[in-house]
Amino acid sequence: MMEFFQWIEDSGLGVYIRESNWGFAIALSAHAVGMGTAVGVVMVATLCELNVLPKIPVASFSNLYSVAWSGFFINLISGIALYTSHATQYSYQAVFIFKLALIVVGGVLLKLMIDSAKTNGEEAGKTKLFALLSLLSWVGAIVTGRLMAYFFQI
């Protein structure tokens, strides 16, 4: 497995992002903008569903979810670029594995919230539970991502 991660790290992209003057910095900047876009829209959608923010019907968010997707894809691309630069390190960081898991869980829960709003209604307890858990997962993804700069050994 380590050979595979080493091969990724030695790839042209990995070397470029790690060793060029601006590769890592620009990928990281794009990652921050994409994070704000994707998680920001999810935060507003879930906080509206939880009645913390003024009610915007979940259905009228449909176009904004495409905005959230554009943020997600910016982060998928910039995230892959960042990953290749330190593949041997990131692959063994627990916080990174947690981050990936939280993104998957947060995405699935958001989908469950949207579906539940359609079938059970926006005021259903189930819909609100999915909203709360999705919000917590996405905030957790930000926290674990940020902590990658601090927890190297576990």
């Binding site: 921050a32 903008v33 994070m35 704000g36 876009t37 998680v39 920001g40 829209v41 999810v42 935060m43 507003v44 915007i56 904004l64 905005v67 905030v139 930000i142 926290v143 991502g145 940020r146 902590l147 700069a149 601090y150």
Partner: peptide, 24 residues
Amino acid sequence: WPFLENLHFIGLSALVGGLLVLDL
């Protein structure tokens, strides 16, 4: 420092989320 950084990033996302929905 990491605690404040996390708050800063969560605040960033909430700020961008609100701005995106309103501005778009």
